[in-house]
């Protein structure tokens, strides 16, 4: 009930949810909507948006809208999978560090600092020289393994503060095993917090994977928004010719829309889990 009231109090939050739902639908059903390979039409290269091609066509005469819809699955699936990997590793490290404190904490947090300090994108493009991680699960492993530092640090500080609460003291006082305390008492209380961090991670991972394709350092195994941007900017001449406008802008706008959707939606989630932010009248 509170959830619904918080969600509907600002219209932006509903809009955010709708945007996310739209893209989720696109990712799930998109490839079925346009089955088969991309249609190529040499007579309609870089044609302007029309009734037939809502977003115009690209350098080969393929429909831009179709490419966007088909590309959505790769982008979103990979980002979600990466966020899942990062959340699992980060939560585990943060929980163990925050719960055990002492030397375990020091070692794990030094490791986390290490992961956070090494610049992610340069590391990934250096890594791409020995491992061409183009497939969704490969990309997700590469992004997840290099991107869990933020989640770990956030979970640790949250664990440290939960640790001092009465219910955990009671659980420890009852002599329950640390495994029970960590997985049965701490983890359920951390879940919403982790979910929030996962949503934030999704934005970052969409940026990172599309950036890797945009730079062209991973093999173009499937059609996605990053590949579109790469071809628009580096071979399609989209930065100079107005004809390629929709081809360049369509993937950019999709990324912007998802970012806005997640930010708007997070605003509601944030208020739900952070009562201190609720407005005082």
């Amino acid at each position: 009930m509170t959830t619904w009231r918080v969600l509907t109090r600002r219209p932006g939050r509903v809009i955010g949810l709708l945007i996310l739902a739209l893209f989720a639908l696109m990712a799930v059903f998109g490839p079925y909507l346009y089955a088969g390979p991309l249609a190529v039409d040499p007579n309609a290269i870089y044609s302007a948006p029309s009734a037939q091609h809502w977003l115009g066509t690209d350098f080969a005469g393929s429909d831009v809208l179709q490419e966007i819809v088909i590309g959505a699955r790769y982008v979103l699936e990979t980002a979600a999978l990466s966020a899942l990997f990062a959340a699992v590793i980060g939560t585990l490290v943060g929980l163990v560090a925050g719960y055990h404190r002492g030397p375990t904490d020091s070692v794990l947090m030094r490791l986390t600092d290490f992961v956070l300090t090494i610049p992610g994108l340069p590391l990934l493009i250096v890594l791409s020289t020995i491992w061409s991680f183009g497939q969704p699960y490969e990309m997700a492993i590469a992004l997840g393994v290099t991107g869990w530092g933020g989640v770990a640090r956030a979970v640790r500080s949250q664990t440290l503060s939960l640790r001092e609460r009465g219910f955990l003291e009671a659980a420890r006082g009852l002599g329950l095993s640390s495994r029970h305390v960590i997985f049965r008492e701490l983890l359920p209380n951390l879940a919403p917090f982790v979910a929030m961090n996962m949503l934030l991670a999704v934005i970052a991972f969409i940026g990172a994977e599309v950036a890797l394709f945009f730079l062209g350092v991973v093999p173009f195994s499937s059609s996605n928004w990053g590949v579109m941007l790469n071809q628009a900017v580096f071979s399609g001449g989209a930065m100079d010719s107005p004809a390629a406008l929709s081809y360049l802008l369509a993937p950019l706008l999709c990324i912007l829309l998802i970012t806005i959707g997640i930010v708007l939606f997070l605003d509601a989630v944030d208020e739900l889990f952070n009562p201190r932010l609720r407005e005082r009248s």
Binding site: I203, V210, M239, I255, L256, T259, L264
Partner: peptide, 29 residues
């Protein structure tokens, strides 16, 4: 205040190259 913090979350979330491409496109092309 709400708009300001929203702008913060927005720019914190937006990927670098999207920002760069949009700026290049708007101010140059």
């Amino acid at each position: 205040g709400g708009l300001l913090s929203m702008s913060g979350s927005f720019f914190a979330g937006i990927p670098v190259f999207v920002l760069a491409l949009v700026l290049a496109f708007l101010f140059h092309t």
